[in-house]
């Protein structure tokens, strides 16, 4: 049962991150190209509809990320506790960047009408999300290495 929950939680975490990063990426790069040929009122209407639909998705993805992330951390907390350097350098950075990215995503999606700085916020959110994914990869690599090392009995010098 525990194994099933751990697998599902990890799957949810990766899938929610995929939805969030992909949605933000599409908003930044695909959306302007898609709406280019529309006249201004229609473009604004489509953009407002887009933001509404994306906001719902982003809110669900953020909730899933927070819950599954907390559970995933709790499962491997003993490894982090035994590897303090790993905890502070990688996991801490991952959580910090994730929280910044989540805040930035919420701010950039607030309201139906896009603000003048909308594109810059979205770009900043994307950079933060990609950096968060990078620290997650580093954390996982370092944790796997730490878990793979055989435990040696303590030796008296």
């Amino acid at each position: 049962m525990e194994a099933a929950i751990a697998i599902i939680s990890r799957w949810l975490h990766v899938s929610a991150a995929a939805v969030l990063i992909g949605g933000v990426f599409a908003t930044l790069l695909v959306l302007p190209a898609a709406l280019k040929r529309l006249d201004e009122p229609r473009r604004d209407a489509a953009l407002a509809g887009w933001r509404r639909a994306l906001r719902r998705t982003v809110h669900i993805a953020l909730a899933v990320l927070l819950i599954s992330g907390t559970y995933n951390t709790a499962v491997v907390w003993s490894v982090y506790k035994s590897q303090r350097a790993l905890l502070h350098a990688l996991w801490g950075t991952h959580v910090l960047l994730a929280l910044l990215a989540l805040g930035s995503a919420l701010l950039s999606m607030a309201g139906d009408a896009a603000r003048p700085w909308h594109r810059k916020w979205i770009a900043a959110t994307l950079v933060l999300l990609l950096a968060t994914a990078a620290t997650a990869s580093g954390t996982k690599w370092a944790r796997d290495r730490a878990q793979a090392r055989p435990t040696e009995p303590a030796r008296i010098p």
């Binding site: 995929a18 939805v19 992909g22 599409a26 695909v30 898609a34 509809g49 887009w50 639909a53 994306l54």
Partner: peptide, 20 residues
């Protein structure tokens, strides 16, 4: 993320955004 998010964006977000 680019593939999954892009696919989801096509399936869920684009149809809602352009329904009017």
């Amino acid at each position: 993320t680019l593939l999954v998010g892009g696919t989801l964006f096509y399936e869920l977000i684009v149809p809602v955004a352009i329904e009017d």
